[in-house]
Every structure is written in structure tokens, then in C-alpha cells.
Design a protein around this nucleic acid. Sequence first.
RNA 1: GCGUCGGUGGCGGAGUGGUCAAUCGCACUUGGCUGUAAACCAAGCGGCUAUAUGCCUACGGGGGUUCAAAUCCCUCCCGGCGCA
Length: 392
Amino acid sequence: MNAITFEILKKDTQSKARAGILHTPHGDIETPAFVAVGTKGTVKGVTVPTLRDIGLQTLIANTYHLHLQPGSSVVKAAGGLHTFMGWDGPLLTDSGGFQVFSLGVGFGKTVSKVTREELDAESKIATVFDQEVASQHGKLAQIDDEGVSFTSHLDGSLHRFTPERSVEIQHELGADMFFTFDECTAAEADHTYQQEAMHRTHRWAERSLRAHRQNIEAGTRQGIFGIVQGGRFEDLRRESARTLADMEFDGFGIGGSYQKQDLDTAVGWVTDELPENKPRHLLGIGEPEDLLKGVQQGIDLFDCVQPTRLARTGTVYGPQGKKMTLTRGEYTLDFSPIDASCECPVCRTYSRAYLSHLFRAHEMLGATLGSVHNLYYLIQLVKGERARLLNS
RNA sequence: GCGUCGGUGGCGGAGUGGUCAAUCGCACUUGGCUGUAAACCAAGCGGCUAUAUGCCUACGGGGGUUCAAAUCCCUCCCGGCGCA
């Protein structure tokens, strides 16, 4: 019996959108769904009871971070991540593959998962991907075919991740589903590099599956998701999706970086190729308009730091999902809620002026309230799309 | 009253003859944030044309020395401390 099973309830006739249910050992996830990011076993600033109150179904923690602190052995001793953090619903863990990017080529730079400006291929690739230049400028991750060596951002200690090690740690963490260790590349990477990295990620996917089979034999009931790469190139994206589709994964993550204007196109190439009967998780994407496009392209799960990170830095989703920077002068005497039509606990109780005050005063409640509102907004947004699909 | 130290941009606080429209911090203004290195980062922050090695007004008030003063001298005002 599989650890997780996926059931499609309805498919849209106008698009690739579908509504379904993902059954996990810790309960069902009604898809499409927004997944909160709880990197270190906590959605920053928000308690588990509150997460339940606002309708969160599942969240994703991170292998790299929990490995460094407190260590997967501590989590295992606690009885697994569910018990450790007090969340008894469905839980995912990410493999640490994103840290290959954020602590590697992305370290000390402003490279993002989603790039807005047109790429000046020649010049950017030269600076970003010259290994020597990169190491001179200091980065904490070094990639080779076997795995990745990380210098801990916490204490400078050296750590080694391989696909097998990531599976082992995630097995100890004990989430319901986990992702294979991959190489998340920058949008600036050229075709040659993307292809090389993609093949590496595919080899790592096979090794992860092999390692996971041993865990299954040992009695684990975790689902394993492979991650599609390929950057912004159609041939690579399709090849990656087809290659992974042929492996025995319970679901698929879609990783890597994009250009903002053709994010949904790139996602579409992938969902064209992936099997319909397995869940697709679009990794790290979560702006309102991107969620809507993702659903249209047949995405079932999204996770993103955006709602909580924006909130901690004073920005919330206002009416129609328009971003509002609460620290702007115009809100200091605005005693209306963030969004009068929002039914979240924050909008029912607090005003923009009060929140603005909390942020200006650096009161931590501001970060908490902003996070609660933003999470609620995105959860409801995707839930609304699901309802629309089921009712159509 | 005498002595002494001090008065710098919204606040705190550098600077003590030219390279000062004046270090820095806070505040303020505006951007940014998409599998969390992030309760963070960046820019701006006297005024004016806004192109600059540009012009104007500025370091308590007034006066002076000097080619040149936030910086030196005189005087007045205000504040801290000490002695009466």
C-alpha cells in the first residue's frame, strides 16, 4: 500500500486545472492547496492553533535547516516532526536542494527564483557561473556530481549532502511526503549548464528512489516526490518531466527558476508531460497571480515564503490582493481593516493604523498578524479556485 | 554673581582653519522581497534648477580675524556643573 494516494475529483474543461484529494497518513489535503513554509519546523511567528484556525492544511519544513539545528536525531527522538512541532496534519519536507541555489550561486547576490528583467545572457552568466569568481566572492555551497558540500551559515562548519543523506535525514524527520535532493539553478544559467545540472538532478533522483526503497522495506510510510528542473528551456523542461515521470515517484515537484512573464508557460511544458494521476507541487511560487496561473496549468500544491516574509517586512495583501506596505505614511491614521471584505481574524479585529504602528515600533505582533492575514488570503484564494472548479 | 564646560541637520552624537551641505546611529520617506542565509535588504533624507567639479541658505544671535571659519577672537543669549 502506498503511503500517499491521490484522487482527482474534477477536471476543468477549459484548462488543465483539477480539483482533488491527496490522502496522507496524517489526513487529507484538498487540492489545489497552498502550503505554508515552516522551514525550521515553525511558520515564523504563527502558532499551530492559529494555522488551523485559518484553514491551513499542510506545511513544509526544510532538511538543511533542521539538520543544522536541532539535528534530525533530536526530531527523531521527539517522535518525528509532527510530534516535535505539535502539528498532526499532513507535513512535507524539502530536501535542501534549494539551498544549493541560495547558498551557492545565490549567496551574497540578489538572484531570485523569479526574474523580471530580460536576461542579458552573456554578461550575467559569466559573472554568476564562473566557479572561481563565485568562490572568491564567498559562497557556502559547492556542487559536484556526488553531492553538495555546504558551509553552515550558522557556525561555518562543513556539511555534506548527497541524495542518500537527504533521504536519510528526511526519513528521520518523518514527514508524510518529502522531496528528492536536487540542484535548483538560477534563471541566468545557460542551456549548457541547465542541461548538465538537470542530468545531475535526474541521477540524484534515481539514487534517492533507491535509498527510499530501503526505508520502505524498513516500514516507512512516506511519499517521495521527484523534482523537475530544466530552467527556462522547453526542451529541457519536457525532457526532465518525462524522465522523472518514468520513475516511481508518488508525486512531482517543479523546481528551478523562471522569468516572470513566462512562468506559466514553463510550468505548462512540465504539466503536459507529467502523469495526470499524480500530484504536482510547484515549488516556491506564491504570488496571487502566479497561483491562479499555476492552477490553470494543473498544479495541485504550492508553497512559498512570500506571504510570511512579506508580512514580516510590513507588506500585506490588501483588497484584490494588491500589495500594501503598511509602513507607508498614508496608513498611520487609516483605521480601516487591511481588507474590509476579508474574514481573517486580523481583519476582523485590527486596523491598518494599528498594524502600521506595530511595524514602526518593531513589535513582533505586527509580523504575526501580517503573516496570519497573508496566509489566510492565499489559502482562501486557492481554496476559492478549488470551489470554482468543483462547482463548474 | 564668579568660575568652568558646552550650544552642530527631527533626535542622539562626530568634526575643532580649507578636501564640510557637514562621519555615524536612530527617526523619517520610498523601493524591493516567489522550495526562508531575511522581524531583512537597498536608496533617499537643507533648498533650488535638477544636466553639475552648479547656485543659494546653513553648525545658538551679532560682530571681527583670515585668501578661506562649524572650527580662531570679542560680545550677547541659553544650558550643565562647581563655588558663593
